[in-house]
Design a protein around this nucleic acid. Sequence first.
DNA 1: CAATTAGGTTAGAATAATTATAAAGAGATG
DNA 2: CATCTCTTTATAATTATTCTAACCTAATTG
Lengths: 150, 150
Amino acid sequence: MDRYKNIGLKLTPQRLAILDFLEGNTTHPSAEEIFAAVSDRFPTMSFATVYNTLETLKEKGAVIELTGDPRKKRFDPNTAPHHHLICIRCRRIADVQVDYKIDLPRSSRMGFEITGNHIEFYGVCPACRKGGPEKTGSGVQTAGEESHEN
Amino acid sequence: MDRYKNIGLKLTPQRLAILDFLEGNTTHPSAEEIFAAVSDRFPTMSFATVYNTLETLKEKGAVIELTGDPRKKRFDPNTAPHHHLICIRCRRIADVQVDYKIDLPRSSRMGFEITGNHIEFYGVCPACRKGGPEKTGSGVQTAGEESHEN
DNA sequence: CAATTAGGTTAGAATAATTATAAAGAGATG
DNA sequence: CATCTCTTTATAATTATTCTAACCTAATTG
């Protein structure tokens, strides 16, 4: 929690509650899940505060907003460079700590100034493999991607 | 267009109009943009038809649904394996045809059965570099990712 | 050709997620 | 204490997407 003291952020009780829930959390929660968890111990919490706080934290670089789940925003308190493994059935997201050196050749940059990259691995998680969860259907961003496999 | 004849799909005028708009389109349009473009030439087009058709095409593997824009769904008629370069300001998405061999070591797969992967490169597009477009703010999925750079 | 069936399309309602607004609160400063 | 700034809250509004029910169309059958 110390890491938040010096980012020029007023640490209100609500923000602390959110930060406390996020700290060390590897489930990549959505705004909804954060709201649910935090309003338990903090019944006056408002949904707007969750979004406001997340937006602020994002600007300060204390959390990262994830893509990969087209249905809702998800947030990751782990701001160190890492990639993700996404279940195409239930949308569960796991961390991938493997470090890849991927460079986009200048000739392919289309004039963009590159600031970073992120790899999404797709797959079926153990639970879904046994006909488990599967709350979500619609496989996203998977077709044709198999050939990247080895 | 021939590629669509044999995927077991009834080629109605509406579907043809959508397919025609998508064909060779590299702008990764959203449902909204597709609707706007197609209802020009086809004023009776309904939004539901756009979503229905895209969902059907996705199931048939004729288009890919993209992640990378948290605000809306986007679709890519290019189903060959490729990656994307995303402007963190205006959310424009460009194709990256470079082929990367990235493999997730078995020890990092968390029991997932891997089906594919997708790299998102982040950057600032030429237009936004000159204080151009920038319709969107909120940089997504960029913090900490710089260190993947070379 | 009338009746039937199987999608497909449409308009509009309904949902879900997110964002905006306006009023109230809390803390710091002069 | 008055003022200022920022935060929080409740609620309304917006946006994107999905659902529903009625309608349409083409193919099929009798």
